[in-house]
Design a protein around this nucleic acid. Structure first.
Lengths: 341, 341
DNA sequence: GTGAAAGCGCTAACAT
DNA sequence: ATGTTAGCGCTTTCAC
């Protein structure tokens, strides 16, 4: 009997304390117009009676939800977990809730997720685009209502959205420049859909580094796929079948780099002697594979923190945030997989 | 000007169609009492006017939120991502939303998360306990309101909660039995806090397998720590310092097993010749480490699906769900790290 | 410093 | 088959 009781409301507290609901509401919120002592009485009573703020009622009134949405391609990478972790830490500290949705790397599902977020009336949205997202019309409905949308990692230019990224072109350049320094002449790039800035920009860096060394760009050395384990294996297959063997690989993520290395090792290729390899992300697996994988450190946790902070600032300041792009620092981490001298 | 317009409500639709708000509300919900044709008119108008259901208003009325909460220790493991993925798939299909919170393996933070979930008025809660959670009093407030709570993986017995697990004792037995078959005589167990069923039960299985082979249990072969990378390294250190070297290791997760292997390899120990190793979870890293790690396959995705389905059933059927424990199938996967004959 | 009253948008019991 | 009405619990303007 004593479970399933009705919820305590501010009316119950008001009655008990012989105050008006309005005063109770104010007292609970530490409104300065209420006497300190009254405030204390109210809070004590609320505590004792097991009062619990009804978010739906207040959201209905105030039209703020204190909820932030996140749409990511997938949760299952070390990078993404770090990002989410960073977001959670700032969001919680600022009193917001988080709802997370996975697009499963699919455009269609991303649209559904965006609508769900809209219907849940999130105060703001953090997005990393799916692999094959074609356009971002599905975010217009939020933007039209001045709900800020911030893109991170896999971003797209939009006049009203801030982007949080690393300098992918520079990172790609750093990776390939390093391979060239190690004496590589024929370097394969394994990347994802070039619609995604991260893969396109890393390719730009690749090209720039080659150009700088006077090496002509060779289309046939660019392999595009989904960059998962299967993708890495497929890439290895392609490389093994090349008539003119490459001597370096720059892969746009560590999972594909590792899968590719395993396949090549199984085929008797020595790394780095025959082929030097550089990955991307500094995933823990880069320190498990043998030889340990040279990679680009990607500050996921910090990216999450910054994206969330920027979003909350945008939510709380009326005018369209003026920051266009925020670029975090990356770093080449050299390990054995690429060391040839 | 045309952005930031006021939301369209059922009143707007009612006025436009010369109907009552009640009829519109019913029409939108496909209430059978409304003429098919009227329903269509209502829906068309809603679509055209850009109507969007206000969840707060309906939640306030109905006291159902269509939201399910998840509390997990951490998001950053392959296992957890798989579980969440499985949950998301069924939850979405059934029209529920998901809110996810990480306890960061800390009791204190788990309490906060539980309260947040309660305040968000989730319809049900899926929980895997933090490393050092002492008791589950913080879920009583939900249970008292008949909000179903289901534990998965790291569970605890409670008369009103269903548990979704694998048979950890049997899995531990399988792992150790396999090591014994391979000729191991002194087997180390690396596990986590024995307050957690998963680690306690795996230890039980370990003991049982030893007992069966007539090998006396040796307390000094049990290493308890946090099972992360650091934990694995620490365990390796301890093992290297043992006067009487063990010839087998059963680690309660793959990350610690892998970190331990790396440390031992660096110290010149040969695996499996000097020491055979078995891990737990079938994390992708088990196929990256060399030699590939023998492990227990843990069906994370399925566990997520089943936990979510069970929860939704509990939400929709008034009486206390009668299922107490649901046990999924596990499987020993033998790879090179343990093969000595 | 506190109270009265209206209304956020929706639903459901009760009419008709 | 549709309409009337009341109310979910909270916030906030205006009054005192």
């Amino acid at each position: 009997m004593e479970d399933q009781q009705k919820d305590i409301t501010i009316y119950d507290i008001a009655r008990k304390l012989d105050l008006s609901p309005a005063t109770v509401s104010r007292g609970l919120k530490d409104h300065p117009a209420i006497k300190k002592e009254t405030r204390k009485r109210i809070k004590d009573a609320a505590m004792k009676m097991g009062y619990q703020n009804n978010l739906f009622a207040s959201n209905l009134r105030t039209k703020k939800t204190n909820t932030i949405g996140i749409i990511v391609p997938r949760l299952n990478s070390y990078f993404m977990s770090s990002v989410i972790s960073g977001m959670e830490s700032v969001v919680n500290a600022r009193g917001y809730n988080l709802i997370i949705s996975q697009s499963q790397e699919a455009f269609e599902k991303e649209i559904v997720s965006a609508n769900t977020m809209f219907n849940s009336r999130v105060d703001g949205l953090l997005v990393s685009l799916a692999y094959d997202t074609q356009n971002i019309d599905h975010y217009e409905v939020l933007l039209k209502k001045k709900i800020p949308v911030i893109f991170f990692d896999r971003v797209v230019d939009h006049p009203r959205c801030t982007n949080i990224v690393i300098d992918n072109a520079k990172a790609g350049y750093d990776a390939v420049h390093h391979l060239l320094e190690q004496g590589c002449k024929r370097i394969v790039y394994i990347g994802g859909n070039l619609k995604r800035n991260v893969y396109a920009d890393r390719l730009k860096g690749y090209k720039l580094a080659l150009a700088e060394s006077g090496i002509p760009f060779d289309e046939s050395l660019v392999i595009i796929n989904t960059l998962n384990e299967q993708g890495g294996q497929d890439a290895a297959q392609k490389i093994l079948e090349m008539k003119q063997k490459p001597d370096g690989i720059f892969a746009a993520n560590d999972s594909s780099a590792v899968a590719c290395m395993q396949e090549m090792k199984a085929a008797g290729i020595r790394i780095p002697t025959d082929i030097a390899v550089v990955g991307f992300n500094n995933d823990p697996i880069s320190r498990i594979i043998e030889p340990n994988l040279t990679t680009i450190n990607y500050p996921g946790y910090e990216m999450g923190e910054i994206a969330a902070t920027t979003l909350i600032n945008a939510i709380n300041s009326a005018p369209g945030s003026t920051i266009n792009t925020l670029v975090l620092r990356h770093q080449l981490i050299v390990r054995e997989s690429s060391l040839r001298r």
